Amino acid sequence: MILATGLAALCLAALHLEVRLLAPALDAPRSPWLSAAGGAAAAYVFVHIFPGLCDGQEALRRTGWAFVAVLDRHVFLIALLGLLVFYGLERAALAARGGRQNPPVGAGSRGAGVFWLHLVSFGLYNFLIGYLLVNRVQPGPVSLVTYFAAMALHMAAGDYGLRRHFTDDYRRLGRKVLAGAILAGWAVGTALRVHEAVLAILFAFLAGGVIMNTMKDEIPLDGSGNFPAFALGATGYGVLLLLV
């Protein structure tokens, strides 16, 4: 299984490095393929991750940790936190650009700090994705394939957003850092497995991040999302997950 997860990590890293080659087919007007990919990633969260978080909630209760006695629905609050973190990042990038229609943020502009904030945040996000390739709540080859496919689709759509905000900086540095973060997360995952309750927290944060990073491109103010393609991707991958 280590070999299989390692191959999956390499493929996800290569996707970050080379998905730009598909840019003419994916860029504005926003491709229906990106919307379908976002729908599939969202379906994975709602059909696969969220039900698993209920088991994670029980794992948290069994730990007896102090904060568990204070808060209820802990893993779902973590998912909400993930959504809020990436919502804040998106708002910061839009503010630095002065709107979606303005040029991307450059390293020498007033938004340089926003680029580095995104780079660190998405680097940690990709590290988490790589780590969870090895340490998933539900182990096994079927779980690996569905997780890998959902994250690959999610990253293809996410890459579009990062290139849109930070074109030159992302091409020169960002994509390399994010590709390396996936491999680093996988490497740590092969050597370190955390408590099942911590694993549930990590998956919850990932779920919130996936939902936000998907929907921010599907419901922008300029209306560039593609609802039929998004619905088709969500329905198709949702049915597939139910069948496996």
Rank of each mutant, 00 (worst) to 15 (best):
N135C: 03
R193E: 13
A231Y: 04
F230N: 04
S224F: 05
T190I: 11
L221N: 09
R171P: 01
N226R: 14
F166C: 00
Y237G: 12
A179K: 05
K216A: 12
L173G: 01
Y160N: 00
G208K: 03
G140T: 10
G238V: 12
F203G: 03
A156V: 12
A204S: 13
L221Y: 11
L206K: 00
A181L: 10
L232V: 15
Y170V: 00
V210N: 03
F230K: 06
L178G: 05
G189L: 04
V142A: 15
Q138F: 15
G223H: 08
L178F: 09
G233A: 13
G161Y: 00
P139C: 11
L232N: 11
P139Q: 10
L144D: 04
I219L: 15
R175L: 08
A204I: 06
F203C: 03
A179V: 08
A156M: 14
I182G: 00
Y147G: 02
L153W: 03
A187C: 09
S224T: 14
A150C: 07
E218I: 02
D159Q: 04
D217W: 02
N135E: 07
Y160W: 07
T235A: 15
P139G: 08
L183T: 07
L144H: 06
A191M: 13
G238F: 09
D217A: 13
T146E: 11
G233T: 11
L232H: 13
N226C: 12
H165K: 05
T146H: 07
G208V: 06
F230D: 01
A207S: 13
Q138D: 15
P141H: 11
L202S: 07
S224V: 03
L232W: 12
E218M: 15
A231H: 05
P220V: 08
F148P: 10
L206W: 01
K176S: 12
R136E: 09
A181V: 02
L199W: 00
L144Q: 10
T214C: 06
G189R: 04
N213P: 03
H165V: 00
A149S: 14
I182E: 01
N226H: 15
Y147H: 10
A150T: 12
V198K: 02
A234V: 03
M212I: 03
Y170R: 00
A234K: 03
I201K: 10
G233C: 13
A204Q: 06
G185E: 02
R172P: 01
E196V: 14
G233Q: 06
D168T: 08
F203S: 10
V239G: 09
F227L: 13
A184Y: 00
I182N: 02
G209P: 09
S143M: 07
A207R: 10
V239I: 15
Y160I: 00
Y160A: 06
L206D: 00
L221E: 12
M215H: 02
G158V: 06
N226Q: 14
V239M: 14
L153F: 07
R175D: 02
N135L: 10
S224E: 12
Y147T: 11
G236D: 11
T214R: 00
V142F: 05
K176H: 15
A197P: 04
L178S: 10
V142M: 15
L206V: 10
T190H: 09
T235C: 14
M151L: 15
A149I: 14
D168A: 07
